[in-house]
Each structure stands twice: as C-alpha cells, then as structure tokens.
Design a protein around this nucleic acid. Structure first.
Lengths: 342, 342
DNA sequence: TTGTAGGCGTTATCAT
DNA sequence: ATGATAACGCCTACAA
C-alpha cells in the first residue's frame, strides 16, 4: 500500500555522487556536463563514465535556480484551439517546432492565450517561467505581445500584424508571391473570370494573399472584384462561395486562400451543379492534408508548414544561445502543386 | 544597445524581501503563500499586503527544488500531430485540459511521443520533469506508458487498450452505449440495410463503438456484416465508404464512428449519386465541428469533448493533491444530436 | 503561532 | 585545469 506515489520518486543521482564516483569535484563534473572546453580529456572520460554508470541526469530545478534560466519556451496559441488545431497547417507547424526542440534540452509549455491575455498569460511569461516564446496565428489586436520582446526573445509564426512590430522576429512564406503563382495557374489554363476567397482581413496572411491575387489579375488586365472574405474554416469557405456564385454566376476560376476553405468551396460548387475543374477550376493554399481529403484533389500553393515550425524554433533557440545575428524575417519558399482541381 | 536580453530580466522580489517589508520571517511568508492555516489573521493581512506591494510571485525553480515537485504535468500526444490535431475532437479535449489547468498553478508540457518512446519521452517523464501525465489517444502497442503509473499519477483520455491496465485512471464516454443510440436512430427512421464505418481496430473507442452497433442490429434481428474499418480521417472514411458501397449497393443507413470519417462518407455517397439522408441516412459520432462543416449537417452521437479534457485534468490534479479516492474510470454521457443526415 | 537554520542540486566566482 | 565555497529562492523540521 503506497500511501502517496508522489513522494516515492526514486532519488536521482546528483552531481555530487557523480563527482565522488569519478574522483573529482562537483565543479568539474558540472563543467563536463555543460561541455566546458577547459577539462582534460582523461577527466572528461572518467566523469562521462561515472555519469553513464549512475545514469545521471541534471536536475532541472536546481540548474534553473542557479543559472536563472528555465530551459523552457512557451508556445502561445490563440484561445480558440478547436479552430486553431482544426487547421492541419498549424498542426504541422507545431510538429516542426517539437521536432527542433527535441534536439535540444528545451521544454515546450503550451499556453493558450486566454480571453484575458493581459493578466494570466502575460504574467506567466513575464514572471520568468520561460526563456523565450513562440507565438502563432495572432490577429490584429493581439498587441499584448508587442511589449514581450523587451522581456525575452520572441519569434512569431507568420508576420505580425502590428505596424510597430518592425523589429519582430518571424518566419513566414512570401504569401503574395505564392498567391501570384496560384492565380497565374488559373490564367495559364485559360480561365478569365477568376474570383477569390480571401482569408480574414485581420490576418496578414489573408491580406498578402489577396494582394498577390489582385496584382496578378491586374497585370493580365482582368477585373479583381470577385472577392469574398472568409475565416479560414471549411464552413466559412462554403458560405463565401455561395455569396460569390450569386454575384458572379459565370465564374470559371477560383483562388482560395486556404485548402480548408477550398474544400468548402468544392462542396458548394458541386451542390450548385458546377464541376471542378470543368466549370470552375480551383487553386488552394497550404497543401495541407485537407487538399487531398475531399472528393477532388486540390491543386494548391504549397507552403512548408512543418519546416516553418522547425525554423521558428530554430531561430528562437539560436537567439537564446546568444546568437543575435539572425535575420528578423525568415521567408520560406512556396511552390505550386498540381493536382486535379486546376 | 542591450547586448543580451536574456540576462536583463529584472530581479523579481523574493520571499526574503516580502518578509522584510511585512516585518516577519521568511518561513511565515512561505506559510501564507502556501495557505497554511496556522498563521494569525493580522500577520496574514500584513504579508498579503506586502506581497501585493512588491508584486511578488514565487520562483518556480526554487520552489520546485525545495519541494521536489515541479508543478508541471505532461500532455503526451501521439507522434502524428497532424492527424491528431486534425481531428477537432482532440483539439477540444486539449482546450478542456488547459481550462482546468488554468485554474491551478500547474503548467502544461507538450510531449510528442516520438517514434522512439522508450528513450526520450519516457526518460523525460521519469526524470522528474513533471508531477503527472495526461496521455491521449494511444493505440495498442503504446504499452510503454504502462509502467509509468508506478512512477507518477497518470490519466488517460479514452480507455487504455492494454488489458493489464486494469487499474489505470481514465476518462471516456460509454462508447458502446453511444453507438447503440446512434444505430437505433437509423432503425427508428425505418432503415433496414445498415452498415458501419468503424474506427481503427487498435483503438478501444473504435472497438467499443462497433460493438454497440452490432449489438443493436442483432437485437433487431438484422445482419451486421456491412462493416468497413477506417482510420478516423476523412480520407479514410471516404475510402471505406467506397468499399462498402461496392459490397452493399443497397445500403440505406450508415453508422460512422466519427464525424470526420462521416464527412468523407457523405462526399463519396453523393459522388455515387446517393442522396443523404434520402437514399442513405448517416449517423456520426463526436459532434465535432466537422459535423456541421460539410454539405449536409450530420446527425451524430455527441460526446462532451471539452468536458472530457477538463475532467482528465481534474482527476490528475486531485490525485496530485493527494486525493486517491477518485474512481479509476470517469464515464461521461453521450447524447444523440438530430440534424439533417438521419 | 512564529522564527531559526539547514538543505534542495546546480552554477559561478575565486583561488590555487 | 581543478577545487573550494558562495549564492540561487524556497521549504520544512525543529526550536522557541
């Protein structure tokens, strides 16, 4: 009958014990553990051996207390997790983040930006619980994070929307360029009455993709009025498609700012008796699993989601390591993936 | 020119400083911070005031070092995050978990069970980095966690598949009962050639739902052979539906073990010229956003995903607080939500 | 009820 | 290059 499992944790070996086994001082063991160069090879060997024998693992709390660093970074995600994670794009980003972090000793603290961000979340971050922060998918108005950069290194996923965040670090794709490529594809296959379902206007990615779309059509001397906004969900994309179809029944091409929204568009189009890509060709954005989960495989502008997450973590880790030479913006390439819809 | 942001963290007030301001000893401050009853009201007031003035927040590392507890719990999710989070059900569960945790001082560490679980993940967990663990969506074969319960409190989301995990703590819904309700609905509206798309056979939820389905049909004296397995994704559901349709062209009812798979089923059905619910009525499971994101709103067996996450965290927290009176299994209710598909 | 003092496991500053 | 020896901020007997 163990009364309380909690206290029963078997005593872990300590630096001290390793030192004794290796016949050196704690300080020396600490040095080899932390990879100091100023230790003679023989001693390194002896210590390493002792560590192996005892199966020693540094105590995080003690290390953190003494070094004043936590070896933890926060992942701040928006409050509405269902919608956030509902988009495979984000899931992939997070996976990339963890992949990079797994190569380090850093831990990932999941922080859901509560509706009361000024208090709990911010306080937690400021209070020294983490060494740095990764912030994903923040909309305009999430300015509460602006000041954070003064406290600790922060890296954004996607260009921050705040105009004053000029010196924010972020990794993103060139959304405008990607949108141009996607829209151009529609032109290339002969479509001339092209519309777009754009992402919410409060997110830079949405704005930039719309810009690229419009720019391409203008260049071709075509009108850019067939645009509807949606919220990056399948349902939103479906609704926007209905509105668009009502206004422009002669639509023959559609550039959609996300694959998830595009799946909604496909549903509605077929519902209205339009074939894809026969009547209406569609180009999506993301190349997420959603692109191939629907009835018609989507031609889409692929962005390296997982790699973006990896890059985010990588930039943060480098900054934490003292490397301030990182460029503020890391732009990843997009590429057009041809499937059935366009 | 700040050379290094990292070290610049402003010195937080310490217990010692609070003690001085309040005119008491550190020990006393510690007592009121930790809510000891044996402190006189006046002193509590004085200390509380000092804490407020200094804006004192306990240092996690120090507390953890002294108390041998981390105030952190791990959230272990399966390696394939894209598929994991791609299912809105899980996103909701995680949201529920964070909601409960937000009411406590516990932090959530996101752990992706790597393909090498025996090493990194397990080592991390065992090495005292967290006080407890929440484990979600583990398949058969994830037995690496079985031994974990001997080290620290663990709570599973969904019944663990391991037969020997008799005394594991978990929160789940009564999947079999839910499936019965859903299948019964199909009978009630007059369907007689009913099939099912079941979840992967290596997950208890999938197995139990299939059991409920079969039981109901047997009770009605109907055959239970029209079953195809899928992997809980939309694409998987679509493929399974194709196979099913091929074998049983006369299908008029379909019980699908998840809404996500059901959306795939709807797509295929319409593609084959079958109307929903006209030709084939469909009942899903989960009542996730996927249920209403497609072309036809799904009648579905609703499970309280968010509440389940909340309950998981709640059980864990109670156990961490020393309350071992919690029941091992927490079963949440399902209910049938009537929409358009059946 | 309150205070004293030792210890938690590291890191970091000095000497040596 | 290595070793004492302080911190680091808090908890917790034990004493008063």
């Amino acid at each position: 009958m163990t009364t309380s499992v909690r206290q029963a944790r078997p005593a872990q070996p300590t630096l001290e014990m390793v030192a004794e086994v290796a016949g050196v001082s704690r300080a020396t063991v600490s040095r080899v553990v932390n990879g100091s160069t100023k230790v003679s090879p023989e001693i390194v060997a002896a210590v390493t051996k002792a560590i192996g024998e005892l199966n020693y693992v540094p105590n995080r709390a003690a290390r953190s207390l003494a070094s004043r660093q936590t070896e933890a970074v926060a992942l701040v995600v928006p409050e509405d997790m269902t919608r956030f994670f509902g988009d495979p794009y984000f899931a992939a980003v997070v996976q990339g983040i963890t992949r990079r972090l797994d190569q380090s000793d850093y831990t990932l603290n999941l922080l859901v930006a509560s509706s009361d961000p000024r208090h709990k979340t911010l306080r937690y971050l400021r209070t020294g619980n983490v060494d740095g922060a990764l912030i994903i998918s923040h909309h305009t108005g999430d300015d509460f994070v602006a000041e954070l950069e003064t406290t600790m290194p922060v890296v954004f996923g996607g260009r921050p929307s705040n105009a004053d965040d000029l010196d924010a670090y972020f990794v993103d794709v060139d959304n405008a360029a990607g949108a141009e490529t996607g829209t151009q594809r529609l032109l290339d296959i002969g479509r001339r009455r092209i519309g777009s379902i754009a992402g919410a206007g409060d997110m830079p990615a949405g704005i930039d993709r719309l810009t690229g779309f419009a720019r391409t059509l203008e260049r071709a001397g075509l009108p850019t009025d067939a645009v509807e906004l949606a919220d990056f969900t399948a349902a939103g994309g479906a609704a926007a498609t209905r509105r668009l179809l009502e206004r422009y029944p002669d639509l023959d091409g559609l550039f959609v700012a996300s694959d998830l929204m595009a799946t909604g568009a496909v549903d509605v189009l077929r519902e209205f008796g339009r074939s894809v890509p026969g009547d209406v060709a569609i180009v999506g954005f993301d190349d997420s699993p959603a692109a191939t989960s629907g009835p018609v495989a989507l031609t889409t502008v692929s962005q390296p989601s997982e790699e973006m997450g990896y890059a985010m973590a990588d930039v943060l880790l480098r900054r934490l390591a003292g490397d301030e030479s990182m460029p503020h913006r890391t732009l990843m390439p997009t590429r057009l993936v041809l499937r059935d819809s366009a």
